[in-house]
């Protein structure tokens, strides 16, 4: 599903964010990306939905060479990738329902589908009863659930979550992780970047460690730190 081959990313200011990264993630996998701040986790994720372009190497998503993708094809790549952020990026003037439906509307989805699929996504994350609330009226966990609903409403092949629990208390963090696991079980590839040791150690998923732009460890049923 995700294939990185010798990816190097050097920013224009000379920072080498990724150095010779090669990684394969299969269709039904759930992986944690861990590593110190500034290691290159976010940069790696941005390569997948073409917000950044590698300086060299190849990025392939769902057999599509993202590196060589024409500008006007990018939207269609992104419809296959849901993204969840630490700071949610919800639209403040829209309700929970509208925030989620928005992701369908802007892809030109037929009106008949928008309502049904939005409701399904809200149901899945457990936000149906808060559908009419505005983001300012939600707790952090509820905001993140809304953000996840928006990311999956399009039925993407891949869900990327960049520190999804960064602003949440431990219990809520676990709720979010269970939700991501549930989504993974519905055959969506899930990639989670996190600094949360307890969660990584508790979930025992594949762990990919990045340090200074290089992959230094790739472990099935892994832990946050090397034992």
């Amino acid at each position: 599903m995700i294939e990185l081959k010798s990816v190097i990313k050097t920013f224009s200011n000379g920072v080498e964010a990724l150095i010779n990264v090669t990684l394969h993630v299969g269709k039904e996998e759930f992986i944690f990306l861990v590593g110190p701040s500034g290691a290159g986790k976010t940069t790696l994720m941005k390569m997948l939905y073409r917000e950044e372009i590698p300086s060299s190497g190849q990025v392939v998503v769902d057999r599509i060479n993202v590196t060589k993708l024409a500008e006007d094809q990018i939207p269609f790549l992104r419809r296959n990738i849901g993204v969840v952020f630490q700071d949610y990026k919800l639209l403040p003037r829209r309700t929970v329902y509208e925030n989620v439906a928005f992701a369908l509307q802007v892809t030109g989805a037929p009106r008949s589908q928008i309502r049904r699929r939005t409701m399904q996504a809200l149901e899945l994350v457990g936000m149906l009863k808060r559908a009419k609330s505005f983001p300012s009226e939600l707790s952090g966990g509820e905001k993140q659930k809304t953000c996840i609903a928006r990311a999956i409403v399009n039925n993407p092949l891949i869900l990327l979550a960049d520190e999804p629990t960064g602003n949440l208390d431990p219990q809520t963090s676990w709720d979010i992780m269970e939700l991501l696991d549930k989504i993974n079980r519905r055959k969506t590839t899930v990639v989670v970047a996190t600094h949360n040791k307890n969660i990584v150690d508790g979930m025992r998923k594949r762990v990919v460690v990045i340090e200074g732009g290089r992959i230094t460890r790739d472990q099935q049923l892994g832990t946050y730190s090397q034992e």
Partner: peptide, 14 residues
């Protein structure tokens, strides 16, 4: 809004 639109795959013309 525009960032989100682009992120979830809205075309430029949209």
């Amino acid at each position: 809004d525009i960032y989100i639109m682009r992120l979830v795959g809205a075309t430029s013309s949209f």
